[in-house]
Design a protein around this nucleic acid. Sequence first.
DNA 1: GTCTATACGATGATAGAC
DNA 2: GTCTATCATCGTATAGAC
Lengths: 195, 195
Amino acid sequence: MARKIGSHSKITGPRVRQAALTLFARHGYAAVSMRQIASAVGVQAGALYNYTADKQALLFDLMQTHMEDLLAALDRCPDHGDPQMRLETFARFHIRYHLDCPDLVFIAYMELRNLTAANFAVIEGLRRRYELRLQNILEAGQKAGVFEMPDIKVASMAIIAMLTGITTWYREEGRLSRAQVEEIYLGMVRKAVNA
Amino acid sequence: MARKIGSHSKITGPRVRQAALTLFARHGYAAVSMRQIASAVGVQAGALYNYTADKQALLFDLMQTHMEDLLAALDRCPDHGDPQMRLETFARFHIRYHLDCPDLVFIAYMELRNLTAANFAVIEGLRRRYELRLQNILEAGQKAGVFEMPDIKVASMAIIAMLTGITTWYREEGRLSRAQVEEIYLGMVRKAVNA
DNA sequence: GTCTATACGATGATAGAC
DNA sequence: GTCTATCATCGTATAGAC
């Protein structure tokens, strides 16, 4: 079990982020100590500072990377032009992406208040951009006469809250499969905008 | 400014809980110290332990009282028998109650992981009872043929998530009044179950 | 790059004076 | 019922050996 000498930064760096992710999601940012993270990685607390400026940067990196990945993945989805198809694509994407990385989603939502003001502004901006993607779809559908809703912004927030809520109760071993859940929620999304 | 001699427990007790509520909601349970709470109340940290066994009990009391008040208030709503009316009553109640005490709602949702296992079980039980109230309404409506949905439990979770989500964006000084928001969401709830 | 050692303040909680 | 004083522990972060 002799420890290799030399550079481990390519390996240890990601492991630090992974350990922080898991621990932050489980216990919350403020409740997790650098010593705990170090212990999960198998190094001493001091060694962590080779990979992050401080604890705050660790949290911010996780959240920023997550939000940017989310936006990039959404933009990689095919755009069929038809608002109804675009809404379906958005809903399916949102559900799948959120079920795929529940820890990141959880942190991105729960730990906003533990960000510094400057970091918070960055994450909030990314979140706005994501919400705007859905609002654009709803607007296009309303103009085309295929959606009908009293308020686009409210509808977008309601849809996102509804879909994201899946992560609070869905269990992989549960009664329903992902595909089933996806269909049920897609139906509710369609009905919400009278599609 | 002479401090009154004698019992202040009737006054200080609630002030301790109020300070804890505000601070926990703003910064999170783990990030708030007993000294901060004491400072907000205007006493020394040691004095807090006349009103709570420890920090955990402070959190648990807030959450338990909130959930029990929520259930009791819901049960005080009139029951018109008709499932459509019952659903409307539930939705309006949920929106109003949650907008009335956003701090308690926020804590009850965000601080679940900071509860001990035993305390968590109690709160989780109360939450289940609340969700069951909505499920009962949906079931009655489905049996009466006035609601139609693929899955009652999923529909209940989706509706609750959607409604609770209002607290994340609603601002008293914002573009929409409470009444407007209530009507918009009520419409979406009805459509979600084909009422 | 990781270790040990350490700085130094903050933490939850208690004891005893008043 | 509140204070002051205190305990033991833990917090983040750094310095220097290897």
